[in-house]
């Protein structure tokens, strides 16, 4: 079972990703490109969590930017105000994010349909308003400056190459955890309850608890990403954590495909690279493209049964004909 060949067959995708991601600093010299790649790692962490929630558990959160904000502001405030160790601050912020997710999740995950979406949207907006209004604590729209970078002994992670390795290592660990989770008993029970909560529960899956677990895990991933960004950029302001960011995160999961955790990778690549391309054509059009993509993807998503299957089939035939012509 654990022959080298078998191990390679099971893990070649992950190993390739790890090698490519960690080798990037050797291949890329451009500082701007390196910072985008590092930024991609933290975005990847958030999207992985959301992909577990959306794809595996079938629950949508439209307020995930708030958890990223909790990580960023939690870290920044604990370090600058209480001079806490940055690594410890990061952990404290993540625990806080998990706690908040629990408080939000317990009542709403019991409700079906659109309610988690609306509750998280409202929660995201409250956090945003607090960031702007609690001026004594957060300095409002001015943001917090002078957040110290991460260090470990003599290693200074404000250096782009070193930071790139650190943040991608963490992202890879998060990704491995998520992959394991989706292939484990937890993942199977999540997939079961996405199809039919009733059937899953009759087989002994505690649906509410499973959904809550995933929601809290995704909040922790988002918080960690927020902390890393805050320590690297050394400046944070509320603008980065609005509704639009939450929607872009959902967009990453949907574009990548949310039936597999690997979709998080493709989605992150798409939503980080695509804006760089669209910006050159039209500065403001980025979100317009994302909005239309969201609609197109769910409308054209293949449907296997029901009256829509025929329509979807017809649409696909249409494209085939065009290709031949």
């Amino acid at each position: 079972m654990s022959t080298p060949v078998g191990f390679w067959n099971r893990n070649w995708g992950f190993i390739t990703l790890a090698v490519v991601a960690l080798a990037m600093p050797l291949l890329v010299a451009d500082a701007y490109l390196l910072s985008i790649l590092a930024f991609m790692a933290t975005r990847f962490m958030v999207v992985i969590g959301l992909s577990l929630l959306l794809g595996q558990a079938g629950q949508i959160s439209l307020g995930h930017a708030a958890f990223v904000a909790i990580g960023a502001y939690g870290s920044a405030l604990l370090v600058t105000r209480l001079s806490m160790n940055p690594w410890l601050a990061m952990v404290v912020a993540a625990v806080l994010a998990a706690g908040v997710a629990g408080v939000i999740g317990i009542p709403t995950l019991k409700l079906k349909g659109h309610y988690l979406a609306m509750a998280t949207l409202g929660f995201g907006e409250i956090v945003f308003i607090l960031l702007v209004q609690l001026k004594g604590l957060t300095r409002g729209t001015d943001g917090i400056t002078g957040i110290p970078p991460l260090t470990l002994g003599s290693l200074d992670f404000s250096q782009p190459r070193l930071y790139h390795v650190l943040v991608w290592l963490v992202a890879l660990i998060v990704f491995r955890l998520a992959l394991n989770l989706s292939e484990s008993r937890v993942g199977r029970s999540l997939k079961a309850l996405r199809r039919s909560e009733l059937a899953a529960e009759s087989l002994g899956v505690n649906a509410s608890w499973r959904k809550l677990q995933v929601f809290m895990i995704s909040a922790v991933f988002a918080s960690l990403a927020g902390s890393f960004d805050a320590h690297y950029v050394q400046f944070i302001s509320p603008d980065s954590y609005g509704i639009t960011f939450s929607v872009i995160l959902v967009c990453s999961v949907v574009i990548g495909g949310f039936r597999s955790v690997w979709g998080a990778l493709w989605g992150t690549l798409a939503t980080v690279i695509l804006p760089e391309v669209i910006k050159r054509i039209h500065e403001d059009a980025v979100n317009l493209v994302f909005g239309i993509l969201l609609i197109l993807i769910v409308v054209l998503l293949p449907v296997k049964s029901g009256p829509l299957a025929r329509v979807a089939h017809d649409v696909r035939c249409l494209f085939h004909r065009e290709e031949r012509g």
Binding site: A117, V286, I292, L294, L301
Partner: peptide, 28 residues
């Protein structure tokens, strides 16, 4: 119309997409 037969998730995503698209179009 194409989403009537699909689940809640698809409908939420489509209307969220529309809100993002309309907001950005209005800004442009």
């Amino acid at each position: 119309r194409p989403l009537m037969a699909k689940g809640v998730l698809a409908q939420v995503i489509a209307t969220v997409g529309a809100s993002l698209a309309l907001r950005t179009a209005a800004m442009m």
